[in-house]
């Protein structure tokens, strides 16, 4: 069975690019355009990995992360933060809340991000 990835990202352009590229690699991608929907879908769809942006409408990314980790149903789902925020306090906060990894979008190409996802599932 293919692995499912929940992509919580409000930029439609990125939803499309990352989503389609992951689908090409054979992953099932569930899109969520805001924090609230993302949190809800995490509970109902139980994805194998969550890619989480931090600046999100309705519910901010760090809040989503906190709620995911507080809930017994979702706390085991690995969360990779994928954002353009790179202040050290934000990075530390995300890792403290239980993020598996923290990727700054500007530092990676699309292929490198896809590579990271593949690497994650191959471990």
């Amino acid at each position: 069975m293919s692995k499912t990835i929940l992509l919580i990202e409000d930029e439609q352009a990125l939803q499309k690019t990352i989503g389609e590229r992951l689908s090409q690699e054979g992953y099932e991608v569930i899109p969520a355009l805001d924090g609230e929907i993302g949190l809800k879908l995490a509970g109902t769809k139980k994805p194998d990995l969550i890619l989480l942006d931090l600046i999100l409408p309705k519910l901010q990314g760090l809040e989503v992360l906190k709620k995911l980790k507080e809930n017994n149903e979702t706390k085991e789902i690995p969360v990779a933060v994928l954002t353009n925020l790179e202040q050290i306090e934000t990075v530390n906060k995300a890792l403290e809340l239980g993020a598996t990894t923290y990727l700054v979008k500007a530092n990676y190409s699309l292929e490198e991000v896809i590579g990271k996802v593949k690497q994650f599932f191959n471990q």
Binding site: A13, L14, T17, I18, N84, A106, S109, L110
Partner: peptide, 24 residues
């Protein structure tokens, strides 16, 4: 930070179009 968001969109869309997978 504000410039980075559209810049990432540009960069990754270009990555997508120019990578070998764009042919698909």
């Amino acid at each position: 930070h504000q410039l980075r968001s559209p810049l990432t969109n540009l960069k990754w869309a270009l990555d997508f179009l120019t990578s070998g997978n764009g042919g698909m």
